[in-house]
Design a protein around this nucleic acid. Structure first.
Lengths: 327, 327
DNA sequence: CTGAAAGCGCTAACAA
DNA sequence: TTGTTAGCGCTTTCAG
C-alpha cells in the first residue's frame, strides 16, 4: 500500500498523511482518522521514497573487521547505543579482515547515501585512503590515528610502556615480548614501541631472543610462548600485545611447569573477560572500547551536523589493572 | 549528482547509464564512455531511487539483544557472512534487552521495506508476537523455538541433560545448579529442565538448597556461588547455565578454598573462550553459535526467495567438551 | 541496441 | 489548517 491508497482509506488527503508523519500540521480530527486507519491497515510510509525526495537517510555505515572479537563488538555496541538514540540506523558490514570487502562496502555506502561512516581500523592500504578521500561524507576511524581523518583511538603505546615499566619496577631484569605485526599500527607498532621505550628508559638491554611474533589467537600465543621459552636463557617478564595471546602463553607456562609470576611475570593489553578468569589472573591495561564507540559516534554526528572540515583526534587513556600475574 | 547530469557528462542517455548498472544491454562504446565518466566523477546511483522504482531493497533487519556478548556477536557474524555473500545488506539494531526497542525496530524495518528479519531471541511478550505477525516479510528467530515462526535453535535441554549426566557418572551424588530466569526459554527453562531430568533419571533426589538464580554476569555467578556454598550441606557438582556464571563461581571457589573438581565438580554451557582459560579449565557444551547465524540467514534467504508459508524449525546439536573441572 | 517518456511513493511549496 | 501539484532519481516499457 502507498500513501495515496492509504489516504483514501483514512478519508483524508495525501498531504495530511504526509504531515502526520512529519510536521504534524494537522487538525485533531484528521489525526484521529489517520491513526484509526493505521491500526486497520498497518500502513508504513516508504523510507526509500522519502529519501528520494528529502535526501536524508539517517543512515550510518559501520565497517567492522571481526564482529566476534570482544573488542570490536564492544566498540560496535557503543556506536549503536548513541546512534540509534539519535534516530540513526546502522548499515553494518563485517569485513572479516578482507580489505577488498572494505572497499566494496564503501561503494555500497555511497549508493545508500549514508550520512557518515565509522571504520574500525586494522591495516590500511593506500587504496583505502584513496577511496576514503573520495567519499564526500564525514568519516571517523576507531582504533588508529591517521592524518587527515577524524579518529578515536587508544593510547596503545602508553599502555605498553606503563605495563612494561610496571614489570621492571617489580624486579624484571630480562623483559620479553610477544607482539603482533607492525602493519597493525595500534596493536602492533605502537605496543612494540611502548615496550621497547620502557626497556630502554630503564637502562636495560633488550635481548632479541626474548621477542616473538604472534597472530591474534590463543593458540598462536601458546606457540609463541613455546618458542620464547625454548632458548637457553629465558625472560623473567613477558609483555603480550593482547590478552588473548597472553592467555595462550599462560596456558603454555602452566603446562610446562613455568610458574607465573615467580619464574616469569606476564601482562597484556585489553582487559578481556578472559584475563580476569585466567590463572593466574592477568595484569592488563583496560582500553575503553565501548566508550571509544560512543565517542566515535558522537564525533560523527557532530561532523554530520556541522559539516566540519577540521579533523579531530581523540585519544582515550587506559587503566592499568594489576592482578596476580605480576603480583 | 544524479543520473541525468551524469549521463550528460558521459555523453550518453539516462537509459544507457541505467542499463550499465543493471542489465548491461549496452554497446561496448557506451560502456567505455560511462566507465570513463565514472572515474572522473565518482558518480554512484541512488539506492533509494532504485528502490522506489523496483521495490527491492536487498535489506535484512537484524535484532540483537546484546552485541557485546560472545554468543550474540558470533551469531551476528554468521548472519553477516552469508547475507553479504548474497548481496544483502544488514540493518542492525542492538536492543540492549529493551523489548520496547525491539518493537520500535520492527516498525523501522517496515518503513525500510526490509526483505526479511532475523531476531535473536531472549524473552518474548505477546506484543512481540502480535507485531511480528503483522510484518508481511519472512522472519527467523535464533536461539529459541517458537510455534508459528521459523527458528534456528540449540539443544539447550539436551546439553544441560548431558552435562549433568556426565557429572553424575563421574560420581556426583548431590548435584546443584546455578540457573537463570525461566522467562528466558532457552538459557533458562530448557536448561533447568535438562538438569532436573538428568537428576531424576539418575534416581537422585534434588535438594532445593542446591539451586540458585543468577544474572548473566560473572559477578552474579560469584554471588550465587557464595549463597550456594553458605549452607551447611554443600553440593558436590554444580551445573551452571552459562560459562560466564561458572567463571564467577570458580572464582568464588578458588578464593574460598573449595577445590574443583575434588570438592565440587563444575560445568556449564557455551564454550566461551573464558572457559578454556579458566582454572581449572571448564567442562562445557559447545553450542554452534556462528553456524546458527549462518543457518538462520540461509533459512531467511530461502523464505524470501520462495515465499514459503510453511514454518521450519532447525535444531543444532551440541558438543560436550570435557576439561579439568570434571576430570 | 537505443532514447523518450511515464511513473514508483513521497514531500514541500503554493495557493486557497 | 488544507489539497493540488511539481518534482526527487531512478527503471522500464515502448517504439524505433
Amino acid at each position: 500500500m502507498n500513501i495515496s491508497e492509504f489516504a483514501v482509506i483514512a478519508g483524508v488527503s495525501k498531504s495530511a498523511v504526509s504531515r502526520y508523519f512529519n510536521n504534524g500540521y494537522l487538525s485533531a480530527d484528521k489525526k484521529e482518522k489517520i491513526e484509526e486507519a493505521l491500526k486497520k491497515t498497518g500502513y508504513a510510509p516508504s523510507a526509500a521514497a522519502r529519501t528520494v525526495k528529502t535526501r536524508v537517510t539517517k543512515l550510518v555505515g559501520v565497517i567492522i573487521p571481526k564482529l566476534s572479537s570482544e573488542s570490536c563488538s564492544k566498540v560496535a555496541e557503543g556506536i549503536s547505543d548513541v546512534l540509534d538514540a539519535q534516530g540513526y540506523k546502522l548499515l553494518l558490514v563485517n569485513t572479516a579482515n578482507d580489505s577488498h570487502k572494505e572497499i566494496e562496502s564503501l561503494e555500497l555506502f555511497r549508493q545508500n547515501r549514508v550520512d557518515g561512516v565509522i571504520l574500525l581500523a586494522t591495516v590500511f592500504s593506500d587504496l583505502h585512503k584513496a577511496v576514503m578521500k573520495k567519499m564526500r561524507v564525514p568519516f571517523v576511524i576507531v582504533g588508529q590515528e591517521m592524518k587527515g581523518f577524524n579518529c578515536v583511538c587508544h593510547n596503545d603505546e602508553g599502555a605498553a610502556f606503563a605495563l612494561t615499566k610496571l614489570m621492571i619496577e617489580k624486579g624484571v631484569k630480562k623483559p620479553g615480548i610477544i607482539g603482533v605485526t607492525r602493519d597493525d599500527a595500534a596493536a602492533g607498532a605502537a605496543r612494540w614501541n611502548g615496550f621497547l621505550n620502557a626497556v630502554a628508559k630503564a637502562g636495560l638491554t633488550f635481548n632479541e631472543d626474548f621477542s616473538e611474533m604472534s597472530e591474534f589467537t590463543m593458540d598462536s600465543g601458546y606457540r609463541a610462548a613455546k618458542r620464547l621459552f625454548s632458548h637457553r636463557e629465558r625472560p623473567d617478564g613477558v609483555f603480550c600485545a593482547t590478552d588473548t595471546i597472553a592467555a595462550g602463553a599462560e596456558l603454555y607456562c602452566r603446562e610446562n611447569g613455568i610458574s607465573i609470576p615467580d619464574d616469569v611475570m606476564m601482562c597484556a593489553i585489553g582487559d578481556s573477560k578472559m584475563g580476569r578468569v585466567a590463572y593466574p589472573s592477568l595484569t592488563t591495561a583496560h582500553l575503553h572500547y565501548k566508550t571509544a564507540g560512543k565517542e566515535a559516534a558522537e564525533m560523527l554526528l557532530h561532523a554530520i551536523k556541522n559539516g566540519d572540515e577540521i579533523q579531530r583526534i581523540l585519544q582515550l587513556d587506559f587503566d592499568i589493572i594489576e592482578r596476580d600475574s605480576t603480583s
